[in-house]
Amino acid sequence: MTSRGPAAIDVRNLAKSFTLHNQGGVTLPVLRRLCLHVSAGECVVLSDPSGAGKSTLLRAIYGNYKPQSGEILVRHGDRMVDVVSAEPRQILDVRRRTMGYVSQFLRVIPRVPAVLVVAEPLRALGVGRAEAIERAQAILARLRIPERLWELSPVTFSGGEQQRVNVARGFIAGHPILLLDEPTASLDAASRALVVQLVHEARQRGTALLGTFHDTDVRERVATRVVSLSDAEAA
């Protein structure tokens, strides 16, 4: 296993299960003692079939899911922060400055125009409104979202358009860590190619990427390493 740079994500013995209290208390174990290491400049792709827990892992790293045990260390500035045990405000700081996430679905807030949705991560970093909007417009243009849609709320966009807004928002701030959960779902070939480009550029910048890609073609073009969860889980 060759690493390009220092560890950006270090998952240690991660265990995650779901207990459905209102359905008889059934427990669904998903991740068992999982270890994974992603370095700066890598794009690690999870290769398992659906239902195996790929999204669960990504969400756990993002702090959106709560593991039962284990550690998720991410490089935040010059320190390693354990997302599992961090305070909520620390996790928010990590998300703001270090870790971006592109999910499958855009959660739409009704009245906010697309350009502001995309600009928000920059605003959260203190970038001025005018500059943030300019950069948002640039990346929206790059992802071929027509200008007439920029001032509209994505509520009425097609699935593909919404997803491209999602991608734009995820990549715009240049976070050192990017988690990508099926970023190319519902995209046509031309848009998929753009996403591949964005991934490559991110890697050049030293970004550590971890993601899942349904499309084998995209997977082959972006992955520096392919991992299966069952391999990553200790016996």
């Binding site: 207990t19 702090g63 959106n64 899911y65």
Partner: peptide, 13 residues
């Protein structure tokens, strides 16, 4: 906990 975590991965019954 964190809002999205409590709403997306609630632990308590």
């Amino acid at each position: 906990g964190l809002t999205d975590q409590v709403l997306d991965d609630p632990q308590h019954p």
